Amino acid sequence: MTSFGRRLLRPVFLGPSAALVLLAGCSGGDATASVTVPSPSPEAAAYCRALDGELPDTVGGLERSDPEPASELTAGWGDGAIVLRCGVERPAKMDDDQSKGITASGVNWMLEQRENDGPRLTTTLRKTYVEVSLSEAYAHDTTPLAAFAPAVKKTIPNRF
């Protein structure tokens, strides 16, 4: 196991009170969200199709509003406030043993802070990578990840 993998075993757990911050601080994103659709392997695409069928209709009070172009590999909530892409490439930052990781409801995520935008998180230790981009409203609040955990755990197996 790499040092990055060991690092993820020391997670930061998100408490239920963080959900109150999420609900108080929600704001919509772009009116017409647009994303790049990933091009995963056939095996990864099958996991992603299964994930798409299990994703929640609402996350943090935001209704599902999928980005363009329509794809089973992408999903969105709140007109771009939360965007999920499944089957993305393994982020290069996963090789950096200084990368930060968190666990939300039993799913490990690598955290990337983006300049002038909210955080981007990518699953780790799963057979395919799921990326969630959050708007600036979530700069210090990653509780939407807990809403995705049941679907990820059900449809995308662990690597080990």
Rank of each mutant, 00 (worst) to 15 (best):
T142M: 14
F148M: 11
R114V: 10
T142Y: 14
S135Y: 02
T143N: 15
M94L: 10
A139T: 13
T103R: 11
I102C: 01
E136G: 15
A104H: 03
R114C: 05
Y129S: 10
T103P: 01
T122Q: 04
G118N: 01
D141A: 08
T123M: 04
G118S: 01
A146S: 15
G118T: 00
K93V: 12
L134K: 01
V152K: 05
S135H: 02
P119D: 05
K127W: 04
S99T: 11
M110R: 05
R120I: 13
F148R: 00
L134W: 00
A139K: 15
A104K: 03
K127G: 04
T103K: 06
T124R: 12
K100T: 09
E115G: 12
K93M: 14
D97A: 12
L145Q: 09
D96V: 05
W109S: 04
D96F: 02
D117E: 12
L111E: 05
Q98N: 12
P150K: 06
K100H: 06
M94V: 02
S105M: 08
S135W: 01
I156T: 04
G106M: 03
E131G: 07
V130N: 01
D95T: 05
D117R: 09
D117K: 04
P150F: 06
E112P: 01
V152C: 13
T155Y: 10
T122Y: 10
R120A: 13
Y138K: 03
T155Q: 07
T142I: 10
Y138L: 07
V130P: 01
N116H: 14
Y138I: 03
S133T: 14
P144I: 03
P157L: 06
Q113I: 07
K127N: 10
S105L: 06
V132G: 05
A139G: 08
D95N: 10
H140G: 15
P150G: 12
E112K: 09
M110N: 11
K154S: 14
D95Q: 08
N116L: 11
V107Q: 02
P157H: 08
A137K: 14
L111I: 07
F148T: 00
T143H: 15
A137M: 09
S135R: 02
S99C: 06
I156S: 05
A104N: 02
V130E: 01
G106H: 05
G106I: 03
Y138Q: 08
M94G: 09
A147F: 13
P150H: 07
A146K: 15
L145E: 09
Q98R: 14
T122A: 11
K93I: 12
Y138R: 07
L125V: 09
E131Y: 01
T103A: 13
F148H: 00
V107Y: 00
R114W: 01
N108Q: 13
K153V: 11
R114K: 12
A137I: 03
V152F: 08
T123K: 03
S133P: 05
K154I: 06
T103D: 13
R120F: 06
R126C: 06
T123Q: 08
L134R: 00
G101K: 00
V107G: 00
V132L: 13
